[in-house]
Design a protein around this nucleic acid. Structure first.
Length: 297
RNA sequence: GGGUGCGUCGCAUAGCGGCAAUUGCAUUGGGCUGUAAACCCAACGUCUUAAUUGACUACGUAGGUUCGAGUCCUACCGCACCCA
């Protein structure tokens, strides 16, 4: 990434208020928004993913929303490409890119902290490796790439398989993580909330989305041929609403579980950023504005 | 009223008489190299120890049998089902 590029990242757990804040800031500082959210990339998954509405956008262009069909599986590298294109476009208009979202992995892919080698998924290989135990896979990887074997999570089958897949495709060891962070170019603003606050926000937002037809949204997907299995892996709202539509759980139970899992999700999201010293945890908009002014100077 | 079965750590589950007790979920913490809301790891009675140390309290309640009981026996309480 070019050294002169300045990016503003707004991160935080689900329902923390990223959307609202980002739009206000983008308006004030001539910014445009790139969404870094692994669910909002899907067309039609609106209420279920808590996607911004046209009205909320208030005229601020948003990128990397609705760029894929739920029938396909979107990967972080596609996001990176999408975001890179968007950044160029925004800069060419002399505006400031705001990266806003809760998917840490996407943000890190974008800033270059996590680089992913070009190696498309290989279904046959995956199927074959899937039958092996993690122990066997680990030994395989150790022979192919000692370095990566040293850093990988030994019992994480998915990662073991992917590492082997990369090596088989590129013919080379897995490239090292750069951990180059581009600090100078990126301003990280984080929104933190207490669990109590978050719970309240999650509850009221869920109630609102349910009243707007979230269940219908999921039902439509199913009726248009999206399998239950796919819906279940599409996130916590589609998962529990599907359960309800299949008459496995009651409506009250749907709400209970979505709230519970949202809090769990928030916790996981925070675990990415917890000890990251680059992040400015902001209390209010004014504070964010001050930091931005300083950063843009 | 008669019969049968069941009461275990928030919920659900396992437990030939040697058990602080299985597993899943939840909870808490940690991790993360093309599925990332995915996936992986750890802790989870209390207090102690340098320690995989030691002690205490625990499987509905109260007794009993036994070197030893969550496990066997008796009574009681609660729940479920069946017959009246």
């Amino acid at each position: 990434m070019d050294n002169k590029i300045k990016l503003i990242v707004i991160l935080g757990p689900t329902s923390s208020g990223k959307t609202g804040l980002s739009i206000k800031l983008a308006k004030k500082f001539k910014g445009e928004i790139i969404s870094a959210d692994s669910r909002q990339v899907y067309k039609g998954l609106n209420l279920a993913s808590g996607k911004v509405t046209k009205k909320e956008m208030a005229g601020i262009p948003h990128y990397c929303l609705d760029v894929s069909s739920v029938k396909k599986r979107y990967a972080s590298q596609e996001f990176k490409k999408c975001a890179d294109v968007a950044i160029k476009k925004i800069l060419s208009k002399n505006k400031i890119p705001f990266i806003v979202g809760g998917t840490a992995f996407y943000i890190k892919a974008l800033t270059g902290e996590i680089i992913a080698p070009e190696a498309p998924p290989n279904p046959e290989l995956r199927e074959k490796l899937e039958k092996k135990t993690t122990g066997e896979l680990f030994i395989m990887l150790e022979k192919l790439d000692r370095r990566r074997a040293g850093t990988i999570e030994r019992f994480n089958k998915r990662r073991l398989i992917r590492a082997i897949e990369i090596i088989k495709y590129t013919g080379k060891p897995v490239p090292e993580r750069t951990d180059k962070t581009n600090d100078k170019n990126v301003l990280y603003l984080g929104i933190k909330r207490t669990k109590k606050e978050l719970k309240k926000r999650i509850e009221s937002r869920l109630a609102e989305r349910l009243s707007q037809g979230m269940i219908k949204e999921i039902l439509n997907f199913h009726e248009s041929g999206v399998s239950w299995k796919r819906l279940e892996e599409l996130g916590l709202e589609p998962r529990w609403v599907s359960s309800y539509l299949k008459k496995k759980i009651s409506k009250e139970e749907v709400e209970r579980r979505i709230i519970r899992d949202s809090l769990l999700l928030a916790r996981h999201q925070m675990s990415w950023w917890g000890r990251d010293r680059r992040i400015h945890w902001i209390k209010n908009q004014t504070q964010a504005e001050r930091l931005i002014i300083k950063f843009l100077k």
